[in-house]
Amino acid sequence: MTKSDRRTAFLFFAPAASFMILFFVYPMFLLVRDSLFDSKTGTQFVGGENYIRALSSDRFYKSLYNTVVFVVGAVSIELILGLVLALLLSTGFRGSHAARTMFLSPLMIAPLVGGLIWKFMLNDQFGILNTILFKIGWIDSPQSILWLSDERYALLSCMIADVWLTTPFMMLVLLAGIQGIPESLYEAAHIDGANKAQRFWRITLPCLRPVIVVALLIRIIDAARSFDIIWVLTQGGPNFSSSVLSTMIYNSMARFNQVGYASAMAILFMVVLMAICGVFMMRLWNPNKKAI
């Protein structure tokens, strides 16, 4: 590496870097600073007080718990559903291409619009989902499940909307992964007399593992960060039953103007998320893993 090479590299990424320093690194610095100052005026240094307040607040733990439930629930349903859809489409039947195109449709919809659609479908008075469930006899009256205003169902409703919006991504990535598995493996297994289930458990799933891990990582990060859908559907209510960390941080920031407190929670949120990702990535970069 010559000196001029280093200078060239620097010139190439300097403009992008300055953007990121101004709007990512500097804000992070401000975030840390804010978290150490009092929430009311933002001028008095209070040290770790905001952190202690967050860590001793039931609502913070409630939101953390809800975030975990939301992420684990939504992402595992997406993974299973996405895998099923990918397997169905990978058989390459006539029309599978058209089906894939149709599955793609929710992919490009803004999370906000997705949230609006479900807010409409799950409405207590005029939601069509209850009407459908009533007509097929699963519930006794069209009003018997208050999806968005019953504490038991609010978070589940947000998960349903998220699953609808992001399963296509899962499906697409897994489908690409499945199509990348060499056909010869299946032929060899067939000759050896492996049945369908064995082929799935012994070939498809192990070969797909790296793809699944990456897809999960991407989805876990995005689901943990999701704000739009939950904000539109429930705003974290009723009674904090669907409050996740991002809506809680937004609320204490925008509604109650508690910048210090919100910043402390934001940092705790980030630390947890990065720790989880770190664990995941370490497994991903495990040098002992066999390359496919």
Binding site: F23, L30, S263, F269, M274
Partner: peptide
């Protein structure tokens, strides 16, 4: 940066 929840940088960004 991909792991940073947007909500956490949104406020200081707003300040800037």
């Amino acid at each position: 940066v991909r792991m940073v929840p947007l909500i956490s940088v949104a406020v200081p960004m707003y300040g800037i």
